[in-house]
Nucleic acid binder design. Structure first.
Lengths: 341, 341
DNA sequence: ATGAAAGCGCTAACAG
DNA sequence: CTGTTAGCGCTTTCAT
């Protein structure tokens, strides 16, 4: 690219000092310049195809107008809506999001955050759902603005935005109970995800209170494949149960596949219920009954909290727990009279 | 945040000039500094928690180590894999992607690109699939590095990465023909997307060559809702046909919904075939027969081409047409003897 | 209302 | 091998 046109070029053409160009082109200082001069400068800028250099501005202002967002994996369908929520809030305010995938690996998370910090993001939305790493306290100490999204609270007093997992699980248990189910299997996610633990514990508690027997099985990852494998294992054990509640929809999808392969009918032989209401869970066969989590809202709220903290310099803690709701579709039905499983 | 520690602070602690710190901390110049000094500097840097300032470096080097990526909508499932492909290639090379959603609106695309250019991205991957806007020739003229992904060729000689739409459509027609279908409806996407036009034209040509009657119906958007509505219209016209080929899987999903609502059976009464093999199309009911497009590879290739062009300063044109394949699932079957539609 | 000058943090000549 | 210096493009005092 031939050398970019700068404020100095514009100044020459308009016949003013380059500082005046800066004032004229900046909304907040434009009033300091005479309207006539402003017009002249704008004309010159357009004529030359001037494009402001945000990098130089960032260096000078110590403000990059970017925020970093770390997620485990973009291809996990719960994240695109969250990210849209984040961008919908930030873009109109002049902010751009830098995305980093961590694949759930603490090492990658660390290097991703380092890279974002080097780029001098004004704040961070961490949605990796992993346990507190050593990094977090250090970030807090340094005054780095962070909002934690979609994960459980840790020891560090950063703001936190999640769906209401406990009440979601309670809704699921209620539904199953009202359908006559008395023995449920819970497919839990890996233990190092805070949501996995929260949902599992809530499940045990809700079932306990409802007088329902709950068997917990852990999947090795939050994927359909892991869910399928976990369900295969459960079915091979010939336990008796009439319903499965999975820690997320991807696991539930795996359960559905396993059930189909074992020639069981859902929901006639077995009810299945997920968590998240991820995009397209409606299209599974059968359509997945699940707990709807307002993913886009989680994104929007996280962005709002971060934005506020960047603006006012505070770093105070809040807990935003967004309400969830039950979505009943085809994968749940009355408990079978004669247990087929 | 308390004032960040800079190269100067490190220099003071290590008792050297700050330029030496720069050399010591930079892999490419580290050899110029005595090993002993390097160690001392690294120790000082660690002790102070020094984080290099990429913004300052970018300004100085005129290299931001970022690329801009514009897409219509992250929540369209074909994009996350593409973006992962892009990031998988770029991240190990020190590059970060700035994402911008345009919602398919030329105005938003323009402002997104402006914003990215202000941030001095080193290049742009444009995957909006819209027609050439006025911007493109101007960008080319200015020497801005761009790679066009997943869209048809335009008048501007930028590199281009797509799936092989024509051969994909041919595969779909072949399959339907071999199943005995002789009257097909093609649900086309809006005309301002180049892929819509390519696939529609390929459809007309392939059917022509195969001696198959093809009726084209246009959907108002590339969404399930638009596909459903288009299919409703088709069914209300009582045309005679035994198969539907949709311009993408989202439209096909809408078709499946419409078919279900009209109490027709798929594939017994009607075969449906999509395009893209987007994530979860396998889970639709029935599983969607479709043309697999290597979305992640499209991302990787785009990133590679852009990277090469950033490296060597060239801006030469290439056309990379990635092979596609037919994926047969439950939504296609033999043409019915007695036409039910 | 505008000009002059300093400096954000860094890299890259150029000296020594 | 290390120090000195200039300058990337911009905003912001401080003068005038």
């Amino acid at each position: 690219m031939s050398r970019a046109v700068t404020i100095v070029d514009v100044a020459k053409l308009a016949g003013v000092h380059f500082a005046t160009v800066s004032r004229a082109l900046n909304p907040s200082t434009q009033a300091q310049v005479s309207p006539e001069t402003v017009r002249r400068i704008q004309k010159a800028a357009k004529a030359l195809g001037y494009v402001p250099n945000a990098v130089a501005r960032s260096l000078r202002n110590n403000l990059s107008m970017t925020v970093g967002v770390t997620i485990p994996d973009l291809t996990n369908p719960i994240f695109p809506p969250m990210i849209r929520g984040i961008e919908n809030f930030l873009a109109p305010r002049g902010y751009t999001a830098l995305l980093a995938n961590t694949d759930g690996r603490p090492g990658m998370e660390q290097s991703a955050i380092s890279s974002l910090l080097e780029r001098r993001v004004d704040g961070l939305i961490i949605a990796t759902g992993l346990d507190d790493h050593v990094l977090l306290p250090r970030l807090f100490e340094q005054g780095v603005k962070v909002v934690l999204a979609n994960r459980g609270g840790g020891s560090v007093p950063y703001p936190l935005v999640t769906g209401d997992d406990r009440s979601g699980i309670a809704m699921a248990v209620d539904l199953l109970k009202s359908l006559g189910h008395r023995r449920i299997v819970h497919i839990a996610g890996p233990d190092n995800f805070s949501t996995s633990r929260t949902r599992r514990d809530a499940m045990i508690q809700s079932c306990d209170e409802a007088g329902i027997a709950c068997q917990v099985v852990s999947a090795s990852a939050l994927t359909a494949e892991a869910g399928e494998k976990a369900m295969d294992d459960v079915l091979s054990q010939r336990q008796s149960f009439t319903a499965v509640q999975a820690s997320n929809d991807l696991l539930a999808l795996g359960v559905l596949r396993s059930v189909r392969r074992h020639r069981l009918r859902c929901p006639e032989d077995l009810s299945v219920i997920g968590f998240n209401d991820m995009p397209f869970s409606e299209e599974f066969s059968p359509g997945l009954t699940t707990i709807h989590v307002p993913l886009e809202d989680i994104g929007t709220e996280s962005a709002r909290l971060l934005f506020e903290r960047i603006q006012n310099g505070k770093n105070d803690s809040v807990l935003v727990r967004l309400p969830v709701s039950l979505v009943v579709r085809g994968s749940t039905g009355p408990a079978p009279k004669k247990q087929r499983v």
